[in-house]
Write a protein that binds this DNA or RNA. Structure first.
Lengths: 144, 144
DNA sequence: TATTGTTATACTCTATAACTATA
DNA sequence: TATAGTTATAGAGTATAACAATA
């Protein structure tokens, strides 16, 4: 026998379940709208951090975003190949690489971040401005 | 040059970014504490839905949890092999499989859900009971 | 003709080990 | 001796195509 209505009552009492479902829902739309920039969420995060933190190192990117170094190499390489970022040897530490957005990278990110802000508005359309602020504050109380 | 302090200001204005970070933080602890039951988050969700919806079909599980049918087969097969669930041919629809938790499965889920509830309390310890309720309500406004 | 479940398989994402260059 | 970056590779997670059985 199947069931008429699936009872998700218990799972919906869990913050982890709800946070994951909400994140997945937003990421789906993110993927669609960022396809024009050929940026996955992780590429967007990496570009945004380099954009707002010129000279940030690969290690700092990994620590901030929870990416493992071997998995960042390919991403940064691809972004450099596309002419969106530059890699320079760090001036004080010859082991590290300093990352910068190129003019093309900056132009792309200005557009991409505007799309992200619009997407944010659309995806939280059922929330008031106050509720959206509250939601973000409560989420940060969990992971920060 | 590296940067002294990484500015994550822009990313932190995005609900999607915050929801994902919060979800990942909770899931990390979930993995640790559910290891004793040998249940990943997806296994827990599947077991919980079968537990609270006896007779639910594979198709209903897939639709509810956003899992693709080919990827559910192995999970259900493993849970059956462990003696936690039973699979029966659906009585009205010979194509479908009805799923039920065994006594062992029910006993396991009573324990596992108690651990999930405790984990919930621990992970949201910086939130008041009201804030936790608000957080869940706002997240559901996004994905439901 | 459509749907449920299944198999096989490809693709992506994430994780581990080991190496180099530098500190 | 430790750290930043890199390479190669393994493992986990997710996706598509095609099929049998049933509706």
């Amino acid at each position: 026998m199947s069931v008429d209505h699936v009872d998700t009552g218990f799972l919906e009492t869990l913050v982890g379940y709800n946070a994951r479902r909400a994140a997945v829902t937003i990421i789906e739309v993110f993927l669609q709208r960022m396809a024009v920039f050929d940026l996955r969420p992780v590429d967007f995060s990496v570009m945004s951090l380099i954009f707002h933190n010129p000279g940030i190192t690969s290690r700092q990117l990994c620590t901030t975003l929870g990416i493992l170094p071997p998995n960042l190499v390919g991403m940064v390489g691809a972004l450099e190949k596309r002419g969106l970022i530059l890699r320079e040897r760090h001036r004080q530490d010859g082991r590290a690489m300093s990352l910068y957005t190129t003019d093309a990278g900056m132009a792309l990110m200005r557009e991409a971040e505007a799309v992200a802000v619009q997407l944010e508005t659309d995806q939280t359309r059922r929330l008031t401005a106050t509720e959206r602020k509250t939601l973000i504050r409560l989420l940060q109380k969990i992971y920060l």
